[in-house]
């Protein structure tokens, strides 16, 4: 009964917090973020002269354009991860390899210990 009461109270608190956040953020007028969403990437790639490069959206457009002319990848993040910072990705994947090797070593040692224990108990 106590658990049910605690769960109900916490659920009400969470709902109130969510409602408060929604109310506050819907009443705010946030400044626009410059995400380059108004730039047509394919148009920009084919005909760069048509795009206005002076406003901040234009800066995002320049990044997209340079990236397309250097790597040809439509996803900027992929081109950064695998081309411009490919060595970094190599190190990250070796970290994963090392972690798995360490886990394998520790767990296989534990298995060996268990087998030794079983052997000892058999001898006794």
């Amino acid at each position: 009964m106590k658990g049910v009461r605690i769960a109900a109270v916490s659920a009400v608190c969470v709902l109130a917090a969510v409602w408060l956040c929604v109310a506050v953020y819907s009443s705010l007028t946030l400044p626009p973020t410059y995400d380059g969403s108004s730039v047509n990437v394919l148009d920009l790639y084919r005909d760069p002269e048509n795009t206005d490069l002076s406003d901040p959206d234009g800066a995002a457009a320049v990044i997209v354009q340079e990236n397309l002319s250097r790597t040809g990848a439509a996803n900027n993040v992929a081109s950064v991860v695998f081309d411009f910072r490919g060595f970094d990705t190599l190190g990250e994947s070796f970290i994963l390899l090392t972690a798995i090797a360490g886990t394998y070593v520790i767990l296989s040692r534990k298995k060996k210990k268990d087998e030794k224990k079983e052997d000892a108990s058999d001898e006794v």
């Binding site: 040809g72 990848a73 695998f82 990705t89």
Partner: peptide, 14 residues
Amino acid sequence: VGDLVSAGTVTFMS
């Protein structure tokens, strides 16, 4: 641009 195999080695490395 936008094809499955369109970005050279980036695609294969991914």
